[in-house]
Design a protein around this nucleic acid. Structure first.
Lengths: 214, 214
DNA sequence: CGCTGGATTGAGTCCGGTCAAGCCTTGTGG
DNA sequence: CCACAAGGCTTGACCGGACTCAATCCAGCG
C-alpha cells in the first residue's frame, strides 16, 4: 500500500464516522434481529458501532449464502441498486448508526463523502472477489483455514472469539455444517489451531495455517 | 428499477464514454494478449470498444479463477486498490480505450465522473455477488444453465455465439472442463438448448432453462 | 490428406454431502 | 444442587456428484 492510499484509508473512516455520528440515527438490535431485509427499499446506509452483523441471501428453495460478516467501523448497504440484495442481521446484540442516502448526499458539498463511499465500495468489492476465489477454487480444508486466518488477523489478539456459529461459517464458506466441524477438528488434530470451546480458539502454528489457506 | 436510477444508468455510459473517447488512448489487442497483469501497478481504467475480455486470477499452485467476462461498453479496472488484483486478457481480437486514473480525476470538475465510476463499481459489485451466490450454492448443472442464460440474455438475439472456450467457462463456474462439457450435453439432451457447434447455440426452452438456473 | 488443439465421452476414485446417532453446554425448574 | 430438556456441535457410516485420468472424436487448417 502506498503512503497516499494509506493516509486516504486512515482519514476516510473518521470523516464518514464523524458525519454519521452527527447526522446518523443510533439504533440497537438484539441478537438475531433483522436490520434490513432482502428486497426491501434500499435508502439507508449502516455503520456498525458495536457487535457484529451478517449479510445473507436466501434462494427460493431455502439455500442460504452469507455475503460477509461486519464488525465495528464497517459500512453496510453499499452493494445496492434500488433494493437490498442481501438482508442484514445482528449476530450478537449490536449498535449501528443509520443514515438516509439522500441526507448523506445533501451533505456532500466538497465531494468528500462520495469519495469515501466509493472507497468503501471498492474495498467491499475486493473482499467479495477474495471470497469468490475461495468458493471457486479452494478445498473444504483450505476454506476453513482461510476463514480462521482472516478472523484471527482481523482481531489481532492472541485469543480469538468467533461471533458466529458453525452454520453461519458453513453458509459463508459454501459448505455444510458437518464438513466445517470435521475440518476444524482436523486442523486441531494437526496442532495448527486450538479450540478452548466451539467459539474460542487460538492459532498455534501460523506458518502452517498460512500455507493451508494458500 | 426507478426512473431516476434508470436515467442515471442510461446517461452515465455516454458521459464516461464520451470522455474516454476524447481523452482515452485507443489500443488494439490480439486474441489471448494480456491487457494488464495481476499485481501490476493499477493506474489505468479500461473500457471495451469491441471484442471481449476476461479477467482472471492465478493462485501460486496454478489454479485459475475467472472474475468476469467483459463486452463492448463495459469498464474494467475498477476493482483495484494499488495494484490489479486480476489480470485482463483479450478473449478475441479487441479494441479498448485506456485512460489514466489521474487524468480522469483531473477532469472531474463537477463530480460527475466520480459519480459515474462509483455507479460502475456498484454494478460490478452486484455482478460479483451474483457470481458468489452461484459458486457457493449451485450445482454443476445449475451453474452451466445460469451461465448460458446470462450470456443469451445479454446478447438478446436468437442465436448466441460464445466468445470463450470450455476451459474459460469452467474456470468461471468453478468446475472442470469435463463437467462443463457433460452438463452442456445433458442440457442438449433435455431439449433445453441446442448447439450448432461448441461455440454456437440457441435456447429452445426458455422456461426450463430459467427453472434450472434457479 | 494428416496434424493439431479443443471438446466429448467413459471408467474409476474421492471429497464433501446426507442421514442418523451421540455428545457437550447451557439454562430452567423441581 | 441436581435432573432434565433443548440446541448446537461432533462423529460415524454411507452415498453420490464432481474430479481425475485416459481414450476418442471432431473441426479447422496447413
Amino acid at each position: 500500500m502506498t503512503l497516499t492510499a494509506l493516509s486516504e484509508t486512515l482519514s476516510a473512516k473518521p470523516h464518514i464516522d464523524d458525519l454519521m455520528e452527527r447526522v446518523g440515527l443510533r439504533m440497537s438490535f438484539a441478537k438475531g434481529e433483522e436490520i434490513f431485509g432482502q428486497d426491501e427499499d434500499a435508502d439507508m446506509i449502516h455503520s456498525v458501532v458495536s457487535g457484529a452483523v451478517r449479510t445473507m441471501r436466501l434462494t427460493s428453495d431455502g439455500r442460504r449464502q452469507i455475503g460477509d460478516f461486519y464488525y465495528p467501523g464497517d459500512i453496510i448497504g453499499l452493494e445496492i441498486g434500488d433494493t437490498y440484495r442481501f438482508s442484514a442481521e445482528a449476530l450478537s446484540d449490536c449498535v449501528v448508526r443509520v443514515i438516509k442516502r439522500s441526507s448523506l448526499h445533501a451533505l456532500n458539498e466538497d465531494g468528500g463523502v462520495d469519495r469515501t463511499l466509493w472507497n468503501a465500495t471498492r474495498r467491499e468489492l475486493e473482499r467479495t472477489q477474495e471470497h469468490l476465489l475461495m468458493l471457486g477454487r479452494k478445498s473444504a480444508c483450505e476454506r476453513v483455514a482461510s476463514f480462521l486466518r482472516d478472523v484471527a488477523q482481523r482481531v489481532g489478539s492472541e485469543d480469538v472469539s468467533l461471533p458466529m456459529g458453525r452454520q453461519d461459517m458453513a453458509d459463508y464458506l459454501g459448505l455444510t455444517i458437518e464438513t466445517v466441524s470435521r475440518m476444524v477438528t482436523q486442523l486441531q488434530g494437526s496442532q495448527i489451531v486450538e479450540f478452548a470451546n466451539s467459539r474460542q480458539f487460538r492459532v498455534t502454528r501460523w506458518p502452517a495455517l498460512e500455507r493451508l489457506a494458500a
